[in-house]
Design a protein around this nucleic acid. Structure first.
Lengths: 349, 349
DNA sequence: ATGAAAGCGCTAACAA
DNA sequence: TTGTTAGCGCTTTCAT
């Protein structure tokens, strides 16, 4: 049925070891026989069996990409970055979308190991460090190059790449304060997610720096979806003393917040300020113009893949790379201009 | 290093064939030995090697998903649909993003075959049927279950699933006509793409049905990106007799069109109508409210995967399923209400 | 320069 | 019920 090197050997009249040599450009083989073999291989329509090769080489040229939500435009950009460098270097990538489901994440991790991927890039759906308990040390049990994307290693045993989420939360909130908003709420996504909790810490730290008391009733978390943003915004508005601004866990949430505000007829940015996080492509559209914190998504995907492939190929040591990128505030139309005279000096963080 | 069934056999004191039986729930094995084997397997932290298994079984439980643009929100929804059913059935999916690059598509197709995937779901970046010449018969040379997503088979040898693009183009254009727009342009994406050319045909057929002459200067194509939509809209506006409405090849293009219109200060929908295609999630956002043609993306992804897995598992015959879904017009805020009295009857298509 | 043969980790037919 | 053995298709020593 499918043609193998043995078939080639038969018609090219040589041993199949020779075929292997010829096809893999190994030295020590007569140029003519090599050509003859290559010719018959293409005549027979030979397609190397990567599975068999993988078995003997213990290398599959395959990596796994484990992410929580491919539908959030943040991740497709990452995926494209990862893919571009992977395919450039002859690797192929398994897409593993967990829908923020811890169980599904584990199932995927197991499958990837069984399929003998050469390495894994993962955005854990839960914060590895703050989550105490042994359950979440699972990444340490994987004996494979791993790069953690937007998360941290519990042991320092894995490279990781992320934006400085704390700083991002800080500058987002700072911007809101300086624009003169008075009661700034936080609408986060998954409370257990690493990036979310860092952003929240940044938010708190900004408030504290400016001498503003932290009001726990203004801090909410649920999901990284816009429905969640809508719902939480709605309930925040029902507070006796409702907020006049909100910093959200990501742009998608902010979109839901904006929708709610529009429905309630609350004017943005005049009476209400909104800052998101990620700077997904749609945030920049003229109709949206969301003020947000930018992450260079495609670049981050590329970097993650480069780091991983370097580790796989032994070009760099495992787990040493800590790449923290600087977040950038993108001021658009959902926050007021900084025309508010503010005397309180920002304390250093 | 890694533990194999031989290691298990050694400590469980049996042959490794027995181990294989025990671990795979094969009949004809003593319940106690099975348990003993299972126990030692987990004690040793055994992880089956799917590569070795794949080699002997000639089945990898892996499928390939080949799409042109993971960044277009249309595709992540598809991917999620595909993934959800795949992972449910124990399959894993290779994400192959081609960026509309025919060469990259071929490279991926080759890689997928070499990696012995069990089947492929592909949105060809070029129209297989209209593209004449032998180059584009490549899918027929692949001896694997394939389902073509939003495209057609040249031979009828592959199942395919798509929306009725022609019909979609027709109802989009019809809607614009009935809303009273007079000069309706078409801004497409890749001219060589199947869905694009079908949508264009639908557009022409609607105009013809309503007795409107087709003006080739109003028909433009470039890329499925919003930059392309912006640029083409801009040049269309420079025409001596510019259009007052446009039907676009997809929503992303429409977003670019809207941006251009806004910049030029042209009022939508009062003075200009826009209809997109796909109904990506962002089109429904309150700030956008794009009138468009809906495709049930997630469902389509699910269906594609189900069809493929059925073929793989011999539950249905290869290449017989032709699934054509009905498009739906979603009227939002980028087109006028149908308050225009129109006497010309729609001829049947 | 080429061939013979072992072995990667597993499944499955055949024996016992 | 269990063991022996032959591959799956390939790479890679070790001989020749």
């Amino acid at each position: 049925m499918t043609v193998t090197i043995k078939d080639i050997a038969r018609v090219a009249n040589c041993s199949y070891a020779t075929v292997s040599r010829a096809l893999n450009n190994k030295p020590g083989i007569n140029a003519q026989t090599r050509q003859r073999i290559i010719d018959t291989a293409s005549q027979l329509g030979y397609q190397p069996n990567a599975i068999a090769r993988g078995l003997v080489m213990q290398r599959t040229h395959t990596i796994g990409l484990v992410i929580p939500d491919i539908v959030n435009p943040f991740f497709p950009e990452i995926a494209r970055g990862v893919e571009d460098v992977a395919s450039d270097q002859g690797y192929t990538v398994f897409l593993c979308n967990t829908n923020w489901d811890q169980t599904k994440e584990n199932v995927y991790l197991k499958a990837l190991q069984e399929k003998r991927v050469d390495g894994i890039i993962i955005t854990p759906s839960i914060d590895l460090v703050s989550a105490n308990g042994t359950n979440y040390a699972y990444l340490n049990e994987i004996n494979l190059p791993i790069v953690i994307f937007s998360g941290q290693s519990t042991t320092g045993g894995h490279s990781h790449i992320e934006i400085d989420n704390h700083r991002g939360g800080f500058i987002a909130t700072k911007h809101l304060i300086e624009a003169g908003y008075k009661r700034i709420a936080f609408i986060g996504g998954r409370e257990s997610s690493h990036s979310n909790s860092e952003r929240l810490k940044g938010y708190k730290s900004a408030l504290t720096s400016y001498g503003i008391a932290i009001d726990e009733t203004l801090i909410t978390n649920h999901d990284f979806y816009s429905e969640s943003g809508y719902a939480l915004m709605e309930s925040l508005l029902k507070l006796p003393n409702p907020p006049d601004a909100v910093f959200t866990g990501n742009d998608i949430i902010a979109l839901g917040v904006l929708e709610c505000l529009q429905k309630k007829g609350i004017r943005v940015p005049e009476d209400f300020g909104v800052v998101g996080f990620d700077n997904i492509i749609f945030s920049g559209y003229p109709q949206i113009q969301l003020t947000t914190i930018s992450q260079p998504q495609y670049l981050m995907g590329k970097l993650a893949a480069e780091i991983l492939l370097n580790e796989i190929n032994g070009l760099s040591t495992k787990g040493v790379r800590k790449t923290i990128l600087e977040p950038e505030l993108i001021i658009r139309k959902t926050t007021r201009k900084l025309n508010f005279p503010y005397n309180i000096r920002e304390k250093s963080r």
